[in-house]
Amino acid sequence: MKRDLPSWAWALAAFVLLLLFNLAFTPGFAHVEIRDGRLFGSLVDVANRAAPTLLLAIGMTLVIGTGGVDLSVGAVMAIAGTVAACLVARPTNCPLNAIPTGKSVPAVAGFAGLAGLLCGLFNGFLVAVVEIQPIVATLLLMVAGRGVAQLLSSGQIITFDSPQLAFVGSGSLLYLPTPVWISLSVLLLVAVLARRTAFGLFVEATGSNLVAARFAGIDSRGIKLIVYAVSGVCAAIAGLIVAADIKAADANNAGLYMELDAILAVSVGGTALTGGRFSLVGTLLGALLMQSVTTTILTRGVAPEIALIVKSAIVVVVCVLQSSVVQSEIARRRMARGAA
């Protein structure tokens, strides 16, 4: 019997097709050069700009695997970015000034991550312990989170001047931009957590059949708490990167609508929103696909309003291709051909 295609096959196919299209028709797409000890070019750009979405999508993959969703990640990005900016810039009247971090970037990043962790635990508490539906529970922080960020920043855009912190967003290491290294490290870390331990199986069991998982002795409550916490930390790292990149924290706009990009990336990558099976490889491909669509549209000079439509069109095509209706039809035809 032939093995089924992996769930992320269609995301890979779409990504490869898009790359081939660009290599053939977009002048200078394949061009990569080394400047100031770092690679430049459209391909590097795709990976660099996909990093924040990828980070959100990694946490989102685990959350969706348990059958939940985390709508608050965009707002958590804003909180984490604001925390970092406030700790570095120290604006007057900021409630965070009591925290003695100095200008130490690891300490600042640590507090930003802690903020994300607390947000994630709050979501996890509402979903796992209070048993509020995930979409409602995380909607709370999606709305309130930006308010929290604005309270911290007194409604101002906080700019800062810290070359060390800026390095997180726009620096480079061994020829590649720092965000690429960071996002891939997080991906690797979470993949090891999920697949080299039984954590991934427990996440999938929880999302597949909560009662059966509980009866089998799995602490699904704890699992849910952890995945929302991981999602919060991932969002904080993404928020740190975005703030560091523009050397400012904008509580209103940082990470706006990015939770939707993250959910799309997970979905396009072949993870069903109903929970159960998840694929981190699919999420990586999904995030890259989403960003390469955007980059392709921009480099080809398509108007931004059309860009959004084209992006959704590609998402729809991939989702339709991996839908169970189309999949079973394909399987049927393959069988019919095999039998003939």
Binding site: T197, A198, A205, S208, N209, G276
Partner: peptide, 27 residues
């Protein structure tokens, strides 16, 4: 309603309780 994990494989369905007993760290 209380037994199978429908999306998961026969293999994963079989080892589930044993794995839960060992804890998530000892895969």
């Amino acid at each position: 309603a209380e037994g199978i994990l429908p999306e998961l494989s026969v293999r994963e369905n079989i080892i589930l309780a044993l794995q839960a007993k060992r804890g998530w760290l000892r895969r």
